[in-house]
Design a protein around this nucleic acid. Structure first.
Lengths: 175, 175
DNA sequence: ATAAGTAAGTTGCATTTCACAACCAAAGTG
DNA sequence: CACTTTGGTTGTGAAATGCAACTTACTTAT
C-alpha cells in the first residue's frame, strides 16, 4: 500500500493525482514545457554541464562530455578503438577523431596501429593520462555528491534507475 | 509492502539492493559514469535535443531550446521583457538578445518600447508567430508521446516529479 | 581472384552556440 | 547631482557538431 516511512514524495500511490508541483520561474509558467520531459532534461543538462566544466576547467581536458568519457574508456580498455568510443559517445567519427587527436597532442593517450586490422587504431593511456583519469574520476564523484546533494538519499536509487532505463531505451531507439 | 500489480521495476523496497541494472554499451562498461547522474542527464539531453531538432527542422525556428521557449513565453505573456526570458532560459542577455533578434527578423514577434521603462522592451507575438507557437506546442506534445513512449505509464508521474524536483532545486542552487 | 561493397579514420567546411567583456542608455538612490 | 544598478546591444573568440568527400583496408560475392 506504499505507506512506508519514506517521505511522502517518494512513494506515489497510483490513484493519487498529486500534480500539485507547479513549476514557475520568476512567476512565469512555461506552457507545455511544464509537463515536458524534454524541458527538464535539457535544462538539467545545461546546468550540470556548466558545473562540471567549471570543476574540470583547470584540467587540460576542459569542456565537453567527450574527452572525459574518452579518457576513462582508454584507461579501462587498453587498445580500444576510436570507433568504439564514438559509439559510446553517440557522435560521428570525425567528432570523435578530433577529440582523440586533441588528447594525443596533449600527451594523454597514444595511438598505435591495430595489428589485427590495419585501418584501425589501438589507443593506450599514457602515464600522464592515467593520472588525469584518476583526477577525472574524483571530480565526477565529487560532483555527484556535492551537486546532487538535493536528491534525498532514499530517492537516489530510484531516480538513478529511471534514468538508466530511459537511457538504455533511448539507445536501443537510436541504433 | 509495495506489492501492487505495478511492474516489479516500478516500486523499490528500500531494503532491496537491486543494483542489477548494469549499463554497458557495445559490451563496454563506462567506469564511474555508470553511476553518475550527470552521464545519463547529458546523454539523454543530446538524444532528446537531436530528436526535437529533427522534428522542428522545417519550422524557421530550427535548433535550440532558446527559440522554442521564447516564442511560447511571448505568446503567453504579451509584453514580456527579454530579461525575463533570459532568466527562464538561464542564458545571459547577449545570448537571449540574439535569439530575440532572430525571431523579430523572422516576423514572429514584435518589439515595442516598454512605456513604463524606456530601457526595456515589450515583446509581442505576431500572427505568424502565434501560428508557429501552436505548431511548436503540437510538436512538443508529440515528442513527449512518441519519443518517451518507453516510460511505463505508471512511471511517468514519478519520473516527472523527480525531474521537476531536481530542476527546481538546481535553479535555487544557481541563483 | 577480382570486383563490389562496407568499415575505419581523416580532412574540409559550414553552421551554430555560447560566454565574456565592453559599452550605452535609463532608473533608482543617496 | 553623483553613484549604483538594471536592460539591451555589439564585438570577439572559442568550441561543438554535423555533413560530405576521400583514402585505405577489410569482406563478401560472383
Amino acid at each position: 500500500m506504499n505507506t512506508d516511512d519514506n517521505s511522502a514524495m517518494t512513494s506515489l500511490p497510483e490513484n493519487a493525482v498529486e500534480d500539485d508541483l507547479k513549476v514557475t520561474i520568476g512567476g512565469l509558467q512555461i506552457d507545455v514545457l511544464e509537463g515536458a520531459f524534454s524541458w527538464y532534461i535539457r535544462s538539467l543538462d545545461s546546468v550540470v554541464s556548466r558545473d562540471l566544466d567549471a570543476r574540470m576547467a583547470h584540467l587540460e581536458i576542459a569542456r565537453g562530455k567527450g574527452k572525459i568519457t574518452a579518457i576513462l574508456l582508454v584507461d579501462d580498455y587498453p587498445g580500444i578503438r576510436p570507433s568504439q568510443i564514438a559509439e559510446v559517445l553517440m557522435r560521428d567519427r570525425p567528432a570523435t577523431g578530433r577529440i582523440i587527436e586533441g588528447m594525443v597532442a596533449a600527451g594523454l593517450i597514444r595511438r598505435e596501429e591495430d595489428p589485427a586490422d590495419q585501418r584501425a587504431q589501438s589507443l593506450f593511456i599514457t602515464e600522464k593520462g592515467q593520472a588525469l583519469a584518476q583526477e577525472v574520476r574524483a571530480i565526477i564523484r565529487a560532483q555527484e555528491e556535492e551537486f546532487f546533494d538535493f536528491i534525498a538519499p532514499e530517492d537516489r536509487a530510484q531516480f538513478m534507475r529511471m534514468l538508466k532505463r530511459a537511457y538504455l531505451n533511448m539507445r536501443t531507439k537510436c541504433s
